[in-house]
């Protein structure tokens, strides 16, 4: 319920607040819409797997070009669930907090606490997530009476098309361990501009290994458990009408500012067109197993 109220507040605030027009990338880690477009252009030019989208006409934001409303990359593989690689996520977060100077205690403190209690929250984590899962699962029994079993459709007269030229085990490669295959999901990842927080915001739409869409809450299994219950929420995508898991942008600006400070102290001048590369590197901590292209060196 808090989320709903906040959503209404945020919507109202976005309506009355002016669009940021003064660059404050280095001071606050935020972007103007023009800078978002510039950073997006660089991302698309460097990694052509990303592309600009127009989205629904009715939902276009006037402060962005009509054909550059948000960025998307599709069919990104995710071979394992995040819980399988939790330690990796923790290690990277420590590096981030090493540079901390107190300006961003809340974000970093969350990490540290979560890190220490990793064992316990890992146990709890699985119990907690279903609170979001429940509506999705509850829907099934409701529908069971009415929706026919798909068995009925599997007609015997055309059980399998016999053809020696079709690869019969098309998606399951025998050389790989079985659990690997079963768990391979793919994600459509989009990045929108959040006017309220003045930062990019990431959205995840998942598919299982048979390319059936995942319920948004299932995407939480691919989010580092430290973040699954706090940083990632299920909301309506701003440019289309469906719900998706989103990484909440409330701390993005401060983390981005910290990252660019790290770059500066390393002797590199952070450039605003590279904002999204930095952003993707930091998001990789939250979704450690989703393998999008973020391996480009920044600051060269």
């Amino acid at each position: 319920m808090r989320g709903v109220i906040h959503g209404i507040y945020k919507g109202a605030a976005e309506y009355v607040l002016p669009v940021r027009s003064v660059s404050a990338f280095k001071e606050k880690g935020v972007l103007t819409p023009e800078e978002f477009v510039e950073a997006g252009d660089t991302l698309v030019a460097t990694c052509p797997t990303w592309s600009w989208q127009a989205g629904e006409i009715a939902k276009q934001r006037p402060f962005l070009p009509p054909d550059k409303q948000y960025l998307i990359t599709r069919n990104v593989p995710c071979l394992k669930r995040a819980s399988a690689v939790e330690d990796y996520g923790g290690a990277v977060e420590k590096i981030l907090s090493g540079e901390g100077d107190g300006a961003d205690d809340e974000w970093l403190a969350t990490e540290n606490v979560a890190d220490e209690s990793a064992e316990t929250s890992r146990m709890e984590g699985t119990d907690d997530i279903p609170s979001m899962d429940t509506p999705a699962e509850k829907a099934e029994p409701d529908n069971d009476d009415d929706i026919p079993d798909m068995d009925e459709f599997e007609t015997n007269d055309n059980v399998m098309e016999v053809d020696e030229a079709s690869l019969s085990t098309p998606y399951l490669v025998a050389t790989e361990p079985e659990e690997n295959i079963i768990r391979t999901r793919t994600y459509d990842i989009s990045i929108t501009y959040d006017k309220f927080y003045q930062t990019p915001r990431m959205w995840l739409c998942g598919y299982d290994e048979m390319r059936q869409p995942l319920a948004p809450a299932q995407a939480l299994e691919d989010v580092s458990h430290d973040h699954a219950r706090k940083t990632v929420t299920v909301e309506t995508h701003p440019h289309s009408s469906h719900t998706a898991a989103s990484i909440h942008p409330c701390q993005h600006a401060s983390v981005m500012m910290k990252l660019s400070e790290m770059l500066t102290s390393g002797g590199n001048e952070p450039r605003v067109d590279q904002y999204l590369f930095l952003f993707l590197k930091f998001i990789a901590v939250i979704i450690p197993t989703i393998e999008y292209d973020y391996t480009f060196a920044v600051g060269r």
């Binding site: 509506p135 829907a139 798909m150 459709f153 599997e154 007609t155 048979m210 059936q212 009408s241 469906h242």
Partner: peptide, 22 residues
């Protein structure tokens, strides 16, 4: 030929329930 297999790898249609998102 070329009918797609369903989510269980058999010849049959697929069904998607978008109740959770719609």
């Amino acid at each position: 030929l070329g009918w797609e297999v369903n989510a269980r790898g058999r010849m049959g249609p697929r069904c998607v329930d978008l109740g959770p998102t719609m």
